[in-house]
Design a protein around this nucleic acid. Sequence first.
DNA 1: CGCTTGACCTACG
DNA 2: CCGTAGGCCAAGC
Length: 125
Amino acid sequence: MSRQDEARAFHYAVYEAVQLIPQGRITTYGHIAKLIYKPRNSRQVGQALKFLPREGQEHEYPYSTANVPWWRVVSSAGVISPREGGAVQLQADLLRQEGVEVDGNNKLKLSEFGWFPETEFDEYD
DNA sequence: CGCTTGACCTACG
DNA sequence: CCGTAGGCCAAGC
């Protein structure tokens, strides 16, 4: 399996896990990493979302912003990760649109809206 | 091939 | 509840 194939497989795993997040709920990059059995790759989870094709854009992946709720993923600090462009504001709007409270500093209450299903890694805590 | 980046995370003051 | 330090690891150059 080539390195590129592995990267694609990782991206697909991330997108599939993100699709599991219920509407009106949020989870973290780190938790998605655990769900796909790559607990030390939280950074790459963010990277995968960055590579998620924008709706309408030409791409090979069977995933895009049209079928992956990328806005339901935030940092472990419960904050919408800062980045270039208007993506942050869009994410805040999409979350509020489904009932998730976002304050003026883009902070969210993980204790209230967090979605953290059990993972096999939790057994080693 | 080595070095820098970055939608991250935990531990510690 | 900040802010910092160190660790992590694929992608880009």
